[in-house]
Design a protein around this nucleic acid. Sequence first.
RNA 1: GCCCUCGUAGCUCAGGGGAUAGAGCAGUGGCCUCCGGAGCCAUGUGCGCAGGUUCGAAUCCUGCCGAGGGCGCCA
Length: 555
Amino acid sequence: MEAVLAGAISTALTRFGVDADPSRIGLERPARTDHGDWSTNAALVSAKGAGLPPRELAQQLAAELDGAGLPHLERTEVAGPGFVNLHLAPSWLHEVLAEVLLEGVDGYACSDIGSGQTVNLEFVSANPTGPLHAGGGRWGAFGDSLARLFRRCGYATVTEYYVNDRGAQMELFGRSLAARLAGEPVPDDGYHGEYVIEWANELAVELEANSAVGDAGPLAVVEARGGTAFAASWGRERALRDVAESLAAMNVGFDRWQSEASLVDSGAMDDVIERLRDAGRVYEQDGAVWLATSEFDDAKDRVLRRSDGEPTYFVPDIAYHHAKFGRGDRVIDVLGADHHGYVPRIAAAMQMLGHAPESYEAIVGQNVTLMRDGKVIELSKRTGTIVEVRELIDAVGPDVARFAFLLQSIDSRQTIDIDLLSAQAAENPVFYVQYAHARIASVARRAEADGVASVPPPGTDLSPLSGDRELALLRALEVLPSVVETALRERAPHKVTTWVRDLAAAFHGFYHDCPILHSQIPPEVRDARLCLTEGTRIGLAIGLDLLGVDAPEAM
RNA sequence: GCCCUCGUAGCUCAGGGGAUAGAGCAGUGGCCUCCGGAGCCAUGUGCGCAGGUUCGAAUCCUGCCGAGGGCGCCA
């Protein structure tokens, strides 16, 4: 419908000989229904070029559209400073509903804007040195929902978690674990969290269960197997298991877990440095090897190899990002605000390696502030203060947790008070939405029990759907495809959250005012309403799936 | 000091050039003779400040104020 109207507006303006700027012409669904079903500012933005007062041009445009024989168009009006409002017959919404029912959950609101394109999306990538922090849940929920949006829009999408399993942090983690195992104090700059003690105990139990320990004790076994390196390697697996399980509980998964160590072992670092040298962007100074990233908008050049001969973390990161281009035409990182300063150097390196500037994208989100009982919890590696996502999920359930993460824009700092969220879990908006879905399932069960098909056959007359609540619900359903496209384009999954709440609200209102299966409801009205109910179910299922939240049949 | 993000109702947040700025929570008052009351309806208050661009600014630009984050041969 939108395309038809936009075409008609464009044709009319051309006929008038108006040289309009298409990028400024908007066709939108007005906030108020008395402003019509669609509204355009075409006359407003074209008036100057046409040499006419806006309202006069609007009058001409309205008349032209009236005479164009557009489907469903009942009348036009000129309003305000020069808007042309288009009032359509409800039949246009009935067509939308028929489309929803025909296409179903796997078809409606799908787009092909990404067909033939591949996307590589990396998110979370927290160091494998401990359980996943609750703040990390935000990146998990965001990244996973963004991936779902990409897929629904036709992009072949690969999601990745980068495992920083080598270098100083791993070394420290291994030492901390070994120290706890030995009952010694952990290094000052090591990992002091409670979980290190628990994990060390786990390791001990595991080793003892594997019999090999004998009289020497677990510590001796660890020493025999490589000491710190063994502890680190065991700890890595332990941490990743925690991360994967915690995220899986929230329906977040990854296609690939890329180990930094194995990437480095493959020789990727040397390879990438060679390429950068060939590109003429590498130089030596003060005994160190530098990359001239400032030539590509970075604030300063960066060190690749320290004067002591050690490569910086930057080198494997370049190698990793370069490798990701083998798995996606567009490479996207989801990062916390504490890493935003790191974006220009990676972007610079990617350009040096021949990747187009627009093919690398970093989405920087604001971090989560965690609170407990109204007090901010400061994270500290030194004291080991941490709030695990697992704790959050255990406290409120996976659906509340994930919905909470996706409730607001990634650009705004999020404050999560665990106690408050727990106390108010029952009032969480996710249940409002899920309740709508469960109600629909309940209606379907009741219909079947009454011997009525809960999904009337295609071709069912939808014209009885003409009341305010019915039309409002149809309108909510109608916007989903554009919501999906906007949410993807703006990298804003929370727009789906907003929409799904709107749809649920429209359904609850409809349900309250429009009896479906009551005895005095005529069969043709009943069937039309059942169609609308089923269409709503489809919309809710699509929205909840994009959000990675369960769509229950009963609660 | 420089850079990034944010400042909207009592609280948590949507809205990010368009007409009379919304939701949830909290408060108050209503609504169950048949489909699930985890629901529906009513009710009050608000765009940090000052300029600018525009027919039109909560939205874009500049400055100021406030909050968070970043500015290593750390990762």
